[in-house]
Structures are given as C-alpha cells and as structure tokens.
C-alpha cells in the first residue's frame, strides 16, 4: 500500500543484557509484518549484515558506563533522526547503577588483576545524561506490545502513546486483586509507570518497579505504608533501590528512608 521507502531502523546496545533487543527478535507473528514495514539495516544481535547510518529510527539498549560508550552514543545520536532508548538500563542506568552508590575505584582494584586496563566511568548512566532522547520505553525488559505500538505509531506519522499512569490503573482494568490490600504484600505499583500489563500482581506478587517511576509519584506515602506493613526503613529503601533505583524519584525515596525520619525532616525545612 505504501509508496514511500521503508524507514531504515538500527538497533544498538550499550551496557546491558540484550533482553530488550530480544523482545524485538521474539516478536513472533509480528516479525513478518515488521519486516514488511521497516528495513532493519543495523542490528548486530540479529544479523552480521550491517549498513552505515543515517537511520530513521534507532533503538538503543543499555546504560552508558565507559568513556567508549559515551563516545559511541553521541555518534549514534548524530546518525539518527528519531532516537528511542529501550529498557531500564538505557532509561535509568539499570540494575548496574547500584554501583553508583559505592566506590567504583575499589571494585576495579578488587576484581581485576590489572586495573590499569579498565577504563570505566564513575557511574552507570541513562542515555539521556549524554544525548537528546526522543522517546523512552522503560521496563526490564521492555514490553513487546509497547515497542510494536511505538513503531507502528511512528510509521503512521503520529507520536507513540506512552502512558505515565501508575501500574494500579492497568492492574484494576485487568481485574487483579490488589496484593497490598488483600495480602499485605509491599508493591511498587502505585508509584511505577504502567506498560507491563501489571505482570507481577497478575501472579500475586508485588510490583518491583522495573518500569521506573510513574507520573510524579508519592513515594513518601508508599514508604510509610511499607513500614506499616512491617518493613524496616532499610528494607523499604531496598525496594526502591533495585532495577530502576537510579531514577531520580526512586533514588530520592531510598535516600530519604536511609537518612531516617529525623534528618529527613531537617532536610525538608530550609
């Protein structure tokens, strides 16, 4: 039906596990339709046939954790018309951003026999720390439906619809019974962006926040609830410091819990 040329799409990875790229490779029946709609011209995970840029749409997975990756992501940006970062690593620094709380220098000295060969950044960064990002698909891994929806929207010439509402909205649409209310289970759903289909509550488990913070979330009120459910402030802080723990809203929530109520109060009054 379409007369115009198929958009050229590239897929890159930084520091990551490849799980988000697999959501694309794993798209099953949608793969054929996808192949008919776009030209994937650079996707090392899928094919050794690699074409140079520029690209119409570029998907980037993974966090930026070395000077080399920092340089690479800037080059990718220069070659891309629309840049979409995919997954918790690319959008918040990922679970590897837990190292941002410790002394990277000490890790390198302890782990590697010749530390001089290791060039690393002090922190694991989301890609938006270095370049302009057009759209962010969060999640660990991303949701395949959300990825295909975003690509379909771009192909049709409209902006992808990426909801900022919390997981609860989708959890209730699907008729799942609230695990906080009916089981006393700590759940990050009220402060986490929807997109996963409320996967964990569907199996009776609390959400662990892998899609990152929702609309400006009230983490303080939820933390209070966690403590009322029997968690220590440290345990509550650890709930926020996980897959997307470096996302500012979750980082601040954990910091506040670890500082304790007294200093948190002092911090609040200027």
């Amino acid at each position: 039906m379409r007369e115009r040329a198929k958009p050229r799409v590239a897929v890159f990875k930084m520091a990551s596990c490849d799980g988000c790229q697999l959501q694309l490779l794993d798209a099953e029946e949608a793969l054929l339709e996808l192949a008919g709609a776009i030209d994937i011209v650079n996707f090392a995970e899928a094919s050794s046939h690699i074409e140079p840029g520029p690209y119409d749409v570029t998907l980037v997975e993974g966090s930026v954790s070395t000077p080399e990756l920092e340089e690479q992501v800037k080059q990718i940006r220069d070659q891309s018309r629309v840049l979409i970062t995919i997954g918790a690593c690319a959008t918040s620094g990922g679970v590897q951003a837990l190292r941002n709380l410790a002394d990277t220098e000490a890790f390198v000295r302890t782990v590697y026999p010749t530390p001089a060969y290791v060039k690393t950044l002090e922190r694991s960064h989301p890609i938006s720390d270095f370049v302009k990002v057009d759209y962010e698909l969060t999640g660990c891994p991303i949701d395949r439906g959300e990825l295909l929806g975003a690509l379909s929207a771009l192909l049709a010439g409209s902006a992808p619809r990426l909801s900022t509402s919390p997981v609860c909205v989708e959890c209730k649409r699907r008729g799942y019974v609230c695990v906080v209310v009916a089981r006393g289970e700590p759940c990050l759903g009220p402060v986490t962006r929807t997109g996963c289909g409320a996967l964990c509550p569907a199996f009776g488990r609390g959400c662990y926040g892998c899609f990152g913070p929702s609309q400006p979330p009230n983490t303080e009120a939820l933390a209070k609830r966690f403590i009322a459910l029997g968690l220590t402030p440290k345990q509550a802080a650890d709930k926020f410091r996980f897959i997307t723990g470096w996302a500012p809203a979750f980082r601040e929530a954990a910091d506040r819990l670890e500082r304790g109520p007294r200093s948190a109060k002092e911090g609040a009054t200027p």
């Binding site: 509402s165 609860c168 909205v169 009220p190």
Partner: peptide, 13 residues
Amino acid sequence: ASRCLACGNCTSV
C-alpha cells in the same frame, strides 16, 4: 494529598 498515592485504585473500584 500528602497521604494520597494518586494511584487511581479508588476510582477503579
């Protein structure tokens, strides 16, 4: 508002 999560559970049920 300081206690409310704005999670929408009330409106859904």
